[in-house]
Design a binder for these strands. Structure first.
Lengths: 145, 145
DNA sequence: TACAACTTACTTGTATGCAAGCATAATCGT
DNA sequence: ACGATTATGCTTGCATACAAGTAAGTTGTA
């Protein structure tokens, strides 16, 4: 049976996803503001902390950021002295993104903040809610669009 | 017991929310591209279709868009001949956003597309998954940040 | 009636997202 | 070896986000 009563705009799944995501991003942004990083920059730092010296393409794959967006982010991380682009000896087209010493220091802070922010953010959810949320978000993310 | 093994970047709830939201936004954007509307523009149209002749502040509250963002969106909807800003007789600072005839026509298409896109997007989820997702997203959205 | 405090919509500046296109370099088939 | 295809990172142009600030208008209060 399909809904006879029209869905309200607020009930749109795209709207709900977008706004919940914005809440999370703002929360995360506040957490890392003291590091002089934006939410996205901190996230990229976190990925680099996990695996360093990877190509821009690889980093883009991991972070789900396209190359145009990544270029700007890397520019800013580089300006801040947190990351640098190294030539890739295996492929002269490619670069290797590398965290500087200052970058690794900052990165370790990001790791700590992420643990804390995550725990704090999901505090209002039951274990079951959190599990289902995570698995459903993953399902949405992984599928072909 | 807290996690001893550090969380991976991918498991960050902010990352998961952001990327799932992006999937949704891209899906929705494709649906409404034929109307020459962006995902956000279509969403605003959908809200206006539901309640017309409201102030920019009211529209911003409903759509969860700040006034700076809304100004640009309304500019573009106005350029496209879909919406217009009317003077507010009750308050000379305020405006009333109004869908034109062309805008209402386009808006009815948006309504239809939204029903379809929603149904299609959640098709891969079980009823239980969808219910929990929606209620959890709502919980996240509604709480204080 | 003054006047301070607040609201409204707008502007500016910066940072993503994303589509489209580019020069350079690598790779594949012949 | 060589031309066609593909891959890499960059650039441009446009559309959100969002912080900060502004001019004009409204409201509460002495």
């Amino acid at each position: 049976m399909l809904a006879i009563i029209a869905m309200k705009a607020e009930d749109c799944i795209f709207f709900q996803l977008s706004k919940a995501s914005q809440r999370g991003a703002r929360f995360w942004a506040q957490k890392v503001a003291c590091l002089n990083l934006t939410a996205v920059q901190a996230m990229v730092m976190r990925f680099l902390y996990e695996k360093d010296e990877i190509t821009s393409a690889e980093l883009g794959f991991r972070t789900d950021l396209d190359s145009a967006t990544l270029t700007g982010i890397l520019d800013r991380l580089e300006s801040a002295g947190l990351a640098e682009r190294l030539p890739n000896p295996d492929d002269r087209r490619a670069i290797l993104v590398h965290l500087t010493a200052k970058g690794r220091e900052s990165g370790s802070q990001v790791v700590k903040f992420m643990e804390e922010a995550n725990a704090e953010f999901v505090r209002g959810l039951s274990g079951e809610e959190e599990r289902t949320l995570r698995s459903t978000l993953k399902k949405i993310r992984k599928r072909a669009v």
